[in-house]
């Protein structure tokens, strides 16, 4: 349980206390940002148990990198960038793994659907969004996740992904085209 005193504290105070080894302070950071990380990681990797592991690894990495956090960006942006990097790295790792075993192009999607099958019943809407996202190319998927699930503007998306605004706009446009085709099939 997080101490009441931490609930109203600024991010900078929590970071300082966490760097000093305060477990409760870091617990409050996790509580504050876990839903944001869940949207990115699960949006990118599918709503599976494996995504939860990746989410945990994001916060573990955050904890170890907090001493280097200078506060130049907001803590939420810093965490968001980590969640994006972890998700994209996991997609690359899966691709390498699939190619090692000569699995076909859509194997990742089938694995995600296979892994999701034993989860509790989801709403139809969530199922639809999951399927649509997983059928998108990852470089377009990340843009859609940032815009739709996180609610970022194009400019903010560009900042988090370290991409020029023009690139984000062109990828967004391609993502829309892909989504239209995908949605027709769902």
């Amino acid at each position: 349980m997080v101490r009441e005193s931490f609930k109203d504290r600024e991010d900078s105070d929590l970071v300082e206390a966490s760097v000093g080894g305060d477990k409760q302070a870091f617990g409050e950071i996790v509580n504050r940002y876990q839903n944001m990380v869940a949207r990115t990681v699960k949006g990118m990797l599918g709503d599976t148990v494996l995504s939860e592991d990746i989410g945990q690894e994001v916060f573990i990495k955050l904890y170890h990198s907090l001493p280097e956090f200078r506060g130049e960006a907001r803590l939420s942006t810093y965490i968001q960038k980590m969640a994006v990097n972890f998700s994209l790295n996991e997609i690359r790792r899966r691709k390498r793994f699939m190619s090692m075993f000569a699995l076909k192009e859509n194997a990742e999607l089938r694995e995600i659907e296979f892994a999701s099958g034993d989860e509790e019943k989801r709403s139809d809407a969530l199922e639809l969004v999951n399927k649509a996202l997983m059928r998108l190319d990852p470089k377009f998927r990340i843009i859609v996740v940032m815009r739709l699930l996180q609610g970022y503007s194009t400019r903010e998306t560009a900042e988090i992904l370290d991409l020029p605004v023009g690139t984000v706009l062109s990828r967004l446009s391609r993502a829309q085209e892909q989504l239209k085709i995908i949605m027709k099939k769902l």
């Binding site: 990380v37 869940a38 709403s123 969530l126």
Partner: peptide
Amino acid sequence: LEEAGVTYTF
């Protein structure tokens, strides 16, 4: 989206 049940949580 949230009202339609599209929520991602751990």
